[in-house]
Amino acid sequence: MGIKAGNQLEMVTARIEGKPDWSEHWFSLTCGPRLVKGGKVWLSPLSEGFKDSHVLGVGSRTAIGFPASRGKLFLVTFLDSLSLEAEAKVMQAIGCLEAMNLDGGASVGLAHQGQVLLPPGRNLTNVLVVYDRKYRAPAQLKESWERFQKGYRPSPDPSVFFD
Rank of each mutant, 00 (worst) to 15 (best):
residue 75 L to F: 06
residue 103 D to S: 00
residue 135 Y to Q: 04
residue 70 R to H: 14
residue 15 R to E: 07
residue 16 I to W: 11
residue 11 M to A: 07
residue 138 P to N: 05
residue 55 V to D: 04
residue 67 P to E: 01
residue 142 K to V: 15
residue 106 A to E: 09
residue 132 D to A: 01
residue 45 P to I: 00
residue 150 K to R: 15
residue 32 G to K: 08
residue 10 E to H: 10
residue 40 K to P: 00
residue 124 L to Y: 13
residue 62 T to Y: 11
residue 129 V to D: 06
residue 140 Q to Y: 09
residue 122 R to M: 08
residue 81 S to G: 09
residue 68 A to I: 10
residue 128 L to D: 02
residue 29 L to R: 03
residue 65 G to I: 11
residue 163 D to T: 10
residue 134 K to T: 11
residue 30 T to P: 10
residue 109 G to H: 02
residue 88 A to S: 10
residue 13 T to F: 09
residue 109 G to S: 01
residue 69 S to H: 00
residue 121 G to L: 05
residue 53 S to T: 12
residue 57 G to E: 04
residue 74 F to Y: 10
residue 108 V to T: 08
residue 115 Q to S: 09
residue 159 S to D: 10
residue 143 E to P: 05
residue 63 A to S: 14
residue 147 R to P: 01
residue 48 E to K: 09
residue 110 L to M: 08
residue 120 P to D: 06
residue 27 F to K: 13
residue 143 E to T: 08
residue 86 A to W: 04
residue 144 S to N: 11
residue 140 Q to R: 01
residue 23 S to N: 07
residue 155 S to C: 11
residue 68 A to V: 12
residue 12 V to S: 03
residue 156 P to N: 00
residue 31 C to L: 07
residue 109 G to C: 03
residue 36 V to C: 05
residue 18 G to C: 10
residue 28 S to A: 14
residue 102 L to T: 05
residue 25 H to F: 09
residue 154 P to S: 06
residue 39 G to P: 04
residue 53 S to N: 08
residue 121 G to P: 05
residue 91 M to Q: 12
residue 116 V to G: 13
residue 43 L to G: 00
residue 80 D to R: 15
residue 36 V to D: 03
residue 92 Q to S: 15
residue 31 C to W: 04
residue 44 S to N: 10
residue 37 K to M: 05
residue 67 P to R: 03
residue 106 A to N: 06
residue 138 P to S: 01
residue 66 F to V: 13
residue 90 V to M: 15
residue 131 Y to I: 07
residue 146 E to D: 07
residue 26 W to A: 15
residue 81 S to P: 11
residue 76 V to P: 04
residue 158 P to T: 00
residue 138 P to C: 00
residue 72 K to W: 12
residue 101 N to C: 01
residue 93 A to E: 13
residue 148 F to E: 09
residue 126 N to F: 09
residue 38 G to T: 07
residue 113 Q to T: 00
residue 95 G to T: 02
residue 133 R to Q: 12
residue 8 Q to N: 14
residue 142 K to I: 11
residue 140 Q to L: 05
residue 133 R to D: 07
residue 115 Q to C: 00
residue 115 Q to L: 02
residue 27 F to N: 14
residue 98 E to K: 06
residue 88 A to E: 08
residue 88 A to W: 06
residue 159 S to T: 08
residue 108 V to K: 07
residue 32 G to L: 05
